[in-house]
Design a protein around this nucleic acid. Structure first.
Lengths: 184, 184
DNA sequence: TCTGTCGTTGACTGCATGGTCAAGAAGCTA
DNA sequence: TAGCTTCTTGACCATGCAGTCAACGACAGA
């Protein structure tokens, strides 16, 4: 690969990280191209497709955020705090990071890196749900699918309702969490 | 107004009722035109704009559904059942009727008929919330704005997640309702 | 420096939508 | 039925996006 081409590939990756970070994975590629100082054609030439570019950056873009949640929550004690903090942090991540939200919403169901990241988050969540239900602190009629739905729904909301403040958003999360607990 | 024009206006109204009923208020006007057997231009000529057409049919399309909820719920006893049944029925209406959902989501904030319908539903909801909070059966930290948000959010979800079954959707509504109650 | 291969460009197609308007069609009245 | 007025048409413009490709440009080895 020629020197200028290598330079461009790296530039595009960086630009994609920047642009996707703030705008999510569905940002038009023209914006990435502009940010990288190349033409859209170059991106397609180098990465094959929109999905190709996303596959090339999504790990760097999102993995750390998900891993941080898993590690932080896994350090907590008590099945209820663990379960609730997992959900709370995931939901806040969705609010804060459009790209992470896109991963959790399975915006590209056919992308393997996206699926891997999504599964990592979900798998951990399922474990916590099971833990919490076994301990009797979370309703028994909540299924693993319900958990995925709760996250997916939050993603849809975050995308569509961008006017609500983070504080209000956060406050309302507690209403949902309350509804998942068992009460006597 | 010429006879054929009058015929067309009525045909367009009927077609709009049909098409909007199943597809919501954001259905492309070409579809309404096709259903009415006229061209798109005729609709614009007769109703001025997309909004003009919607204003002309939305009352017939949605008012009855909202009124039914209000009447049915108002016949119930007990602040908690009243409040919860209001929300449950509103949420189910959003699932069942895309057009009603568009009204409740304020898809056209500048349309006066839409605003009127929306306000009718919300006003009643606020009353029930107040009732329920005064009776101590619903959390005090829920604001009227939260109520609107709960409905708006459900609307966003219904629009985006069209694959979930009605039964699952309904079952999950109860999780939310549980979270709004006071427990002990 | 020359030259051929690799790389980049940006105009182009395609698609879906909202909305407009000149020209032709149709109803109505005398 | 003639002719005027009203109506309708559908091609057209504009926007925003994905993705393509022929032609031009630049690197690097000889």
């Amino acid at each position: 690969m020629r020197a200028d081409a290598r330079r461009n590939v790296e530039g595009i990756r960086q630009a994609a990280l920047d642009v996707f970070r703030t705008g999510g994975l569905t940002t038009p590629l023209d914006e990435v191209a502009r940010a990288a100082g190349v033409s859209k054609g170059t991106i397609y030439h180098r990465f094959g497709s929109r999905t190709g570019l996303i596959d090339a950056v999504v790990e760097d873009l999102v993995a750390a955020r998900i891993d941080t949640i898993i590690e932080t929550v896994d350090a907590l004690d008590g099945p209820l705090p663990r379960f609730e903090e997992y959900l709370r942090r995931t939901w806040l991540l969705q609010f804060d990071e459009p790209a992470a939200n896109d991963v959790l919403m399975r915006v590209l169901p056919d992308s393997e890196p996206l699926t891997t990241l999504f599964e990592r988050a979900c798998h951990f969540g399922r474990r916590l749900l099971h833990e919490a239900q076994s301990a009797g602190v979370v309703r028994d009629d909540i299924t693993p699918d319900d958990l995925v739905t709760l996250i997916l729904e939050r993603g849809v909301i975050v995308r569509a309702c961008d006017q609500q403040t983070r504080d209000d958003y956060r406050r309302r999360l507690d209403f949902i969490l309350r509804g998942l607990r068992t009460h006597r």
